[in-house]
Design a protein around this nucleic acid. Sequence first.
DNA 1: TTGAAAGCGCTAACAG
DNA 2: CTGTTAGCGCTTTCAA
Lengths: 344, 344
Amino acid sequence: MERTRVTIEDVAAAAGVSVATVSRALRGLPNVAMSTRAHISAVASDLHYVADPMATRLATGRSRTIGCVVPLLGGWYFAQVVAGVEAVCAEAGFDLIVQSAGSAERLSDLANDAPTLQRRVDGLVMVDYALTDDNVAAFRTAGIEVVSVGAATGGFCTVGIDDAAVGEMAAQHLIELGHARIGLIGSTRTEPFRFAVPELRASGFRIALANAGIDHDPHLFADGNFSVGGGAEAMTSLLAMSSPPTAVFALSDEMAFGARRAAERAGLDIPGDISLLGVDDHELAALFDLTTVAQDPSAVGVSAARQLIARVDSEHNDDVHVVDRVVLPTRLVERGTTGPVHSA
Amino acid sequence: MERTRVTIEDVAAAAGVSVATVSRALRGLPNVAMSTRAHISAVASDLHYVADPMATRLATGRSRTIGCVVPLLGGWYFAQVVAGVEAVCAEAGFDLIVQSAGSAERLSDLANDAPTLQRRVDGLVMVDYALTDDNVAAFRTAGIEVVSVGAATGGFCTVGIDDAAVGEMAAQHLIELGHARIGLIGSTRTEPFRFAVPELRASGFRIALANAGIDHDPHLFADGNFSVGGGAEAMTSLLAMSSPPTAVFALSDEMAFGARRAAERAGLDIPGDISLLGVDDHELAALFDLTTVAQDPSAVGVSAARQLIARVDSEHNDDVHVVDRVVLPTRLVERGTTGPVHSA
DNA sequence: TTGAAAGCGCTAACAG
DNA sequence: CTGTTAGCGCTTTCAA
């Protein structure tokens, strides 16, 4: 068990060359004789030499680390995204720092910390945030590369799905089944996360209805706060209406789970009495036999991380087509919670 | 927008003192005149000076970063643990690096990387791993502080729950309801995660049965692989027995969800025909009205992170009682899936 | 193709 | 109480 670190100087001495040559040789830089390179490599592995990351980082100014900021660790969606980001980092040899910022204040703290952040990470994946101009300016002047996940913000590269299309697909499916009175379970919260998402999905949904000549009763909306419990409450309030909907579109599967339970508790048959449709294809959606518009959040994380790493690391420049916006596919997964409208 | 970093030298020059004094003053070290300290602080914040983390890390050899290694990012349990760890890191001013290692090979890769890992993190939280002697040796000789989550391994500080007690509580509850033929849905996988957990829970369960004078039919076991689908299959096979159980204990809520669905599909009433009990108190357990033995994985993460940080950072030495083993509470949450046995 | 030497920005003895 | 001076370990001109 060696007690002292073996440094580049040790290798240089043992190989009978200068540290500069060792540095070049080991990093595969040009202008090193084949023989010297081989010799140095041998000596280095012999000594179990590995370059000290901190020294390298200080000298180069790059950390081979990216950060991923999410509103909430531990939620299904965010956990999937982070998993995707991590997978890419692991394969690219990057470290991944995760931070959660669940409020606009915490987000600003982070932005104010941009100067030191810049030294700790080469870039940031910001998941589902609405960045203020100040936030954006802070990251920009600190020189931190940012890729955003979700709706576009701050003029950064954005990867996500087409949320309006999600709403359209949902509406379309329900319309085809003959539904006209369709309830919507969404959210009116805009701080700090998923800000534009509910509105985008809802608007796509409304547009599709309008295109079909159906005018949507704005009262058929209930706030489910993107939670299971909220979904249940929302469904309950929808069912309490004098003229309840024949179908309900929940903007997330978790809200749909709650909604389903509430409907069952109310003695309703699904889809006999009321159809239900969610978004996500959560891992438990199949179990609930929930029809849903599927997305793949881990693929979003993968794509975002690739875009980011391609921008900050010249070695990975060509791993991916660097673009300003990548839109990942969604698709309707028909299961058992939607069916033809029951004519009264 | 300043283009060049402001260094400690700039501050020293502007304040008319030496860099050493600036360093001491800003870090709150003793032996600095009150007046000088105040002056330096003023100048520093005036210049928006912040110490470069990388330079500090190289000079001190400490990174104020901890790592968290999990078998699988994106699973409910692990996401909760990571969330707890992150919360503590954020409040202690530590960065958190997350890595997933889903196989024994990836785990060994990580251990082999211990020398550079040691420079990048001050310590590691290893979640639900069975560390080999080689792994342990690698971390030890690299001087990486480790706290393990789950069952004890490698002689490191361990934080977790009493899994045997979990099994006992479950058995006890079912016994009190009069059940004697109780099925067990568990897992026989041991690599690389949750290794000892299923066995510990199962053994506690069996011991409680034995103490109650019930001899447990070993055929009443089915492998659910800790997944929803696996739980469903396991339940199906249990129900296919010539003499099926009157109650089933699933070693995790997710398996219980699947089991519940399978039972319902088979036309059985819960708890009328068969009782069902899980472990975790997953966020969706209430929705399924599932009786379960609750644990709080994010609290586990919090506790583990505190133990680790107290060990690696003298400033946080007293934040927590440093011990070798912390056991967090679990409790039975009675809901609607368990009921008295139906005498035939 | 290789080496010498000047950083990168901070900390930590050691003097004074 | 404060300043001087070596490092920390690697990268990167600039010469040779």
